[in-house]
Design a protein around this nucleic acid. Structure first.
Length: 512
RNA sequence: GGCCCCAUCGUCUAGAGGCCUAGGACAUCGCCCUCUCACGGCGAAGACAGGGAUUCGAAUUCCCUUGGGGCUACCA
């Protein structure tokens, strides 16, 4: 069943062919990652092709979002809009060769090609013109449903004579082109993951190839383009399996050799029930970026959703994945899209990251919340680099950075509430004494260092006959306003003596 | 409804007839570390959907049932 690709299949020429109808979907992102891995690991090409054949659903900003999202994930492509080494600025309406040798890469600019092959199919008896109105089609469908018949075109126009077709055109009627599906027989198709699949031709209807607006349907366009663009492996979502035989039949009718097909398992809702949709949280790739996920983490997470290495390695950089990614390790069962593990990956990558790099990634979020100015002065940025290691292992999402470092970046903090300063088993009076004596101990330190502070405060606790923690906690609240912070000595060190004493004085007044 | 796909812990998965008293990771729970929160360490709990068949032997092969999912547009 599972086939390991022989060397002769290399290199792979694969395409990612999104429809510009909205933002790049998380499922599409995984497909793109697999495409990219396959192309790059075999020395082949990765192509971006825009399937904009539905004019009613076209969203102009979508193309930019798709390209930005792919790049954010660290993917690059060889042909198509935005491809490296081509005129990356070129968009719609540019020279057909601007994005690579098999352009245009926008299907809306390849209409003459689809028309040419549609005509050829008609001439060869594999397709025909259909003049049925949508009203008639709806009526047919309704009747079929009422009669509990499987819905599908009733082939009303299949036997129209050439003369009648001509006269209808002469009368100004509009037509679509339909595929003339074989009435009997079985079509066997081969999926690289699932092996042989077979379909009874009689269960397939005469689907539309060319719409009345002159645009092709997916079925015609994908076959024509994959062939013309010399795609070796058509990698797409499992939702296409149902129309797989239509595509194979089209290849045969056109007399073309088939590429290999890989249908990736689809993403299900986190509960496993139903296809993943917006109702289950973020489905757009950019939403993950905005939620504070690292592209490295998302890449790693998506990589493992439907693919598994032969060993138990879980952490993969793109470079590492390139070395071991193969088609035969891709899974075929649907995947429940649960993000728990993504959260873990994010923490792992945050902890692994160089503090300066992490600071750069956090900067936009800090500027967003107003803790740092934009542009950020170098000395402020350097201070950020200094405190980042203190919160690094506590950061799970970049969006959390502000609440973790606000007391470092702000000169002053809000005066802590009395209830927060006084520990459960303590009293305002005792807390007052602790803070006052702590202040005194810290103030007289000649060297405001981690070790000096620790020594001074621990011996203070001993002198007072209380646990060290009973000193540290009120102190922590006094100087940060929070009960959960980095280590108290690291924190005071980063804050500096002046701010520490100032905040202590402020807290002490609360207890007076 | 019809056609098709899929089926191991809650989730992602390892497993291609004996190596499985089914392994790992996330999540959960407990303990430890500890100035808080995290991190980290250790441990616990947790699955082969059911039934037949083949075989000396089945999570692994075949069939049926069940369950889940996809498609069923002049959308992709």
């Amino acid at each position: 069943m599972q086939e390991v690709f022989p060397l002769s299949d290399l290199p792979f020429r694969v395409r990612f062919a999104p429809s510009p109808t909205g933002f790049l979907h998380i499922g599409g992102a995984r497909t793109a990652i697999y495409d990219w891995l396959l192309a790059r690991s075999t020395g082949g090409q990765f192509i971006l092709r825009i399937e904009d054949t539905d004019r009613t659903r076209f969203v102009a900003e979508s193309l930019q979002d798709i390209m930005d999202s792919l790049k954010w994930l660290g993917l690059d492509w060889d042909e198509g809009p935005g491809a490296r080494g081509t005129d990356e600025k070129a968009g719609y309406g540019s020279d057909p060769t601007a994005h690579g040798p098999y352009g245009p890469y926008f299907q809306s600019e390849r209409l003459d090609l689809y028309h040419k092959y549609a005509r050829q199919l008609i001439a060869d008896g594999h397709a025909y013109y259909c003049f049925c109105s949508s009203e008639r089609l709806n009526a047919v469908r309704t009747a079929q449903e009422a009669a509990k018949q499987p819905p599908g075109y009733d082939r009303h126009c299949r036997t129209l004579s050439p003369e009648e077709v001509q006269s209808r055109f002469d009368a100004g009627e509009k037509a679509v082109v339909r595929f003339k599906m074989p009435l009997k027989g079985t079509t066997e198709v081969y999926d690289e993951l699932r092996g042989k699949l077979s379909f009874e031709n009689r269960t397939l209807d005469d689907h539309i190839l060319l719409k009345s607006d002159g645009f092709p349907t997916y079925h015609l366009a994908v076959v024509v383009d994959d062939h013309l663009m010399k795609i070796t492996h058509a990698v797409r979502g499992e939702e296409w399996i149902a129309s797989f035989p239509r595509h194979v039949l089209l290849y045969q009718a056109l007399g073309w050799e088939l590429p290999k097909f890989v249908h990736l398992p689809i993403f299900l809702a986190p509960s496993g029930g139903g296809k993943l949709s917006k109702r289950h949280g973020a489905t757009g790739l950019k939403e993950y970026r905005d939620k504070g996920y690292l592209p490295e983490a998302l890449f790693n997470f998506l990589l493992l959703l439907g693919w598994h290495p032969s060993d138990e390695q879980e952490l993969f950089t793109a470079e590492e994945a390139l070395k071991v990614f193969t088609v035969d390790r891709i899974n075929k069962s649907p995947v429940a899209f649960s993000t728990d593990k993504l959260d873990w990956f994010n923490g792992v990558y945050i902890r692994k990251m160089d503090p300066r790099e992490l600071s750069k990634r956090c900067l936009p979020f800090l500027q967003e919340s107003g803790l740092l100015p934009d542009p950020c002065p170098p000395e402020r940025f350097e201070y950020l680099v200094k405190i980042i290691p203190l919160v690094q292992e506590r950061l799970k999402w970049l969006t959390e950075i502000s609440e973790l470092v606000d007391f470092f970046l702000n000169e002053d903090i809000a005066v802590p509430k009395k209830e927060l300063l006084v520990q459960k088993k303590s009293t305002p009076e005792e807390t007052h004494v602790i803070l006052q004596r702590s202040r005194a101990a810290l103030a007289e330190l000649s060297e405001f260092s981690h070790d000096a502070m620790e020594q001074a405060l621990r011996s203070l606790a001993e002198t007072m006959g209380i646990k060290a923690g009973q000193v540290f906690m009120p102190l922590r609240v006094a100087i940060t306003g929070r009960t959960a912070t980095p280590g108290i000595f690291e924190t005071m060190d980063a804050l500096g003596k002046e701010r520490v004493l100032k905040r202590l004085d402020q807290a002490i007044t609360v207890l007076n």
